[in-house]
Nucleic acid binder design. Sequence first.
DNA 1: AGTGGAAATAAGTATTTACTTATATAAGTC
DNA 2: GACTTATATAAGTAAATACTTATTTCCACT
Lengths: 105, 105
Amino acid sequence: MSYEKALEALADPTRRALFERIGKTPSSVGELADAFPISQPAVSQHLRVLREADLVQVRREGTRRIYGVSREGLGALRAYVESFWSDVLSAFADGASQSSEGAAQ
Amino acid sequence: MSYEKALEALADPTRRALFERIGKTPSSVGELADAFPISQPAVSQHLRVLREADLVQVRREGTRRIYGVSREGLGALRAYVESFWSDVLSAFADGASQSSEGAAQ
DNA sequence: AGTGGAAATAAGTATTTACTTATATAAGTC
DNA sequence: GACTTATATAAGTAAATACTTATTTCCACT
């Protein structure tokens, strides 16, 4: 749906690192705050942006909140990039206008 | 190579719009400056960022410069998203831990 | 070489944003 | 209900950035 928000969310290096870490192992806010050199509120703020981009998902576990990757936002981003990519490929096949390039792929 | 720069470049709405327009029809700086409600230098600055992210490519044509999409940066971004996506899918297949989701794909 | 047009760079500015510390909310435990 | 632990929100700040106008660079043409 909104690949725009996904792009904006993943543009920031810290937020991207948080997202990648969450992708490998779902984590609580505290675990993330321990693993990264920023404060807990900073982590929460980043998580909020990632959540609003549908890139992550929360699950309550007692008093903690476990953040994991959501497929919604990532899927939207993937669809966008993929469609753009195929457009570019077909434009290249048509025109073959890109001068400084060698073989395809 | 550097999907990071591609993400940062495409995060800005104006720059993303420029990139999408260039994807449809390669254009000169002047044409872009006419088509968008920003000044020519602003266009040039955005093009520079897109160029440094290997998302666009320049070709000289007389005194003008025609910008077209480059496959380098877009391919890098695509590879990143794609690999992340497949990781998420396999993690989902393993754990099936995402609570609020329905069927796969 | 001199002129004209196209694009890049320089310099300055207002907005955005990624952080901080302080505080509030929420859930589990006694 | 009081206390502790975990997370979110409030408020403020310094750095990044997307624009502007002014100027420079670069190419074509005479």
